[in-house]
Amino acid sequence: MDVSVESLYREHRPWLTGWLRARLGHCSDRAADFAQDTFVRILQSGACVAEVTQPRSYLATIARGLMIDHFRRHDIEQAYLSELALVPPSLQPSLEERAILLETLLTIDRLLADLGPKVRQAFLLAQVEGLDQATIAAQLGVSVSSVKKYMQQAVVQCLKCL
Rank of each mutant, 00 (worst) to 15 (best):
R120C: 10
C48N: 15
G65C: 10
F39R: 03
L125D: 13
Q121C: 08
L86R: 15
S82Q: 13
Q92F: 01
L125T: 04
L59W: 07
H70D: 12
P55V: 10
V49A: 08
R120S: 11
Q92W: 02
Q54R: 12
I76R: 13
Q36I: 05
Q44H: 13
T53N: 01
A35I: 05
V119F: 02
D69Y: 03
Q78M: 14
I76H: 10
R64M: 06
P55A: 12
F39V: 06
Q44F: 07
R73K: 13
L86T: 12
A113I: 01
D75V: 07
R98E: 07
M67Q: 08
T38N: 06
L125E: 12
A63E: 06
Q44R: 15
Q92K: 10
E97F: 01
Y58W: 04
D114Y: 00
R72L: 12
D37Y: 04
T107D: 06
I42R: 11
L115G: 05
L112Y: 01
V40K: 01
E51N: 09
D37Q: 15
A47I: 07
A60F: 07
A99D: 13
I62C: 02
S45T: 14
I42Q: 11
L59C: 07
P88L: 09
A35V: 05
Q78Y: 05
P88S: 14
D69F: 03
P89H: 04
E77R: 15
A47D: 13
H70R: 10
A35W: 04
M67Y: 06
I100E: 13
I100M: 06
Q92G: 02
D69S: 12
M67G: 01
L84M: 13
D75C: 04
G65L: 09
L66R: 12
A63D: 08
G116Q: 08
A47F: 02
Y58E: 02
V52P: 06
E77M: 09
P89L: 04
Q44A: 14
L43E: 14
R110D: 13
R110F: 04
A99L: 06
P117L: 12
R98D: 00
E97T: 12
Q44M: 11
Y80G: 07
R73P: 00
F71D: 09
R56T: 13
Q44I: 03
Q36T: 15
D114W: 01
A113N: 10
Q121E: 15
V40F: 03
D109Y: 08
T61I: 00
E77Q: 14
V119K: 01
T107Q: 12
R73C: 04
Q36N: 12
R73E: 10
Y58F: 15
L86P: 00
L66N: 09
A60Y: 08
K118N: 14
L66Q: 10
P93D: 01
I76Y: 08
R64L: 06
R98F: 00
Y80A: 07
K118W: 07
L124P: 02
V87K: 10
Q121I: 00
P117H: 14
L112F: 00
R72Y: 04
L43R: 15
T38D: 05
S57C: 08
G116S: 09
A50I: 03
D109A: 15
C48E: 13
L124N: 02
P88Y: 09
E51V: 11
